[in-house]
Amino acid sequence: MNRDELADFLRIRRAHVTPAEVGLPGGDRRRTPGLRRQEVAQLAGMSIDYYIRLEQGRGPHPSRQVLNALARALMLSQDERAHLFHLAGQAVESPRIREDVPESLLHLLSFMEEVPAYVLDARYDIRAWNPLANALMGGLDSVTDETRNVIRWVFMSPDITKHFEDEEKSRFARASVADLRAAMGRYPDDRKLQALVTELLGLSPHFAELWSRHEVEIRRQQRKRVTHPVVGEIDVICQVMAVPDRDDLRLVLYTAEPGSPSHQALRDLRQLTLSS
């Protein structure tokens, strides 16, 4: 059980729920941006003293019944609820991030000749990729395993301030941090993941600001724009698919609307890979 993280998560989520959302009167003299502690305790059916101790990181180990009640009171999403259970040490199992990629997944990548695809682990390290992903993302095979990390690329970029001026790129960065937060809840003992977060907190004010929000959301489908030096801008649909029996891995596919200029750009890029 991670008491400090649990306490931080409860405080931040409480501040994001308005009285009106849970059927309580607001009033003009409220000094709390969201719900009061007493209101959360009331909605969850527990004593105010018990809830205060949870928010102060000194409470007892909450049961699954208590966590379910808190999830309802704080109107948590499915991803946030799962994160709450992980922080409280109530996950069904304690998974770990592995370093290998199943051979069947490597075979699948090799057959996907017209779609850029790669395998991403919970730390945002790219573990495997096909030739088209290599061409689109600028030479994945030319960097070391330690630096082939998507979230580090985003927040350590010299153009990070300009990056956040773009709505789509800013949304991608925010979603990535929320997803990494979820990973920290699932893999609290992973030292490499802890080191990555510590590094980014120390080096990137943008990352630190997003991390402080304690937003939690598993990444799924998202649109993004990729600029390639030869074929130009490509608007892609970034589809993130879970790998069966491997919660620490996801298959990421970049597709485009059929018949669109971006679709043609991906085809042109494939021809470049075939001719090189």
Rank of each mutant, 00 (worst) to 15 (best):
V150I: 15
Y50G: 06
Q42C: 02
I52P: 07
F111Y: 10
E55N: 08
L74M: 12
I48L: 06
A175G: 15
V154S: 01
D8A: 13
H263V: 05
S47M: 01
T255A: 03
Q222K: 12
R152E: 15
Q78R: 04
W153L: 07
K192N: 13
L105S: 02
S204F: 05
T18D: 03
E215W: 05
R246C: 14
A41R: 00
E217V: 10
G45S: 12
I151H: 05
R36I: 10
M112C: 05
A71G: 11
A73F: 09
F172I: 02
D247T: 02
G59F: 04
D100I: 12
R72E: 15
R30S: 13
E257C: 06
Q271D: 06
S276Y: 14
L253E: 05
I48C: 10
D121W: 13
R219Q: 08
A88F: 03
G232M: 01
R29G: 02
L109N: 00
I97E: 08
L106M: 04
V150F: 14
S176D: 15
P244D: 15
D79G: 04
Q271E: 08
E55W: 05
D190G: 02
V231R: 01
M46D: 08
H214E: 06
G89A: 04
G259P: 07
K169F: 00
D125Q: 07
L76H: 07
R181D: 00
D121P: 15
A73R: 05
P19H: 09
R152Q: 07
E113T: 13
R220M: 04
S104W: 11
K162L: 10
S142W: 03
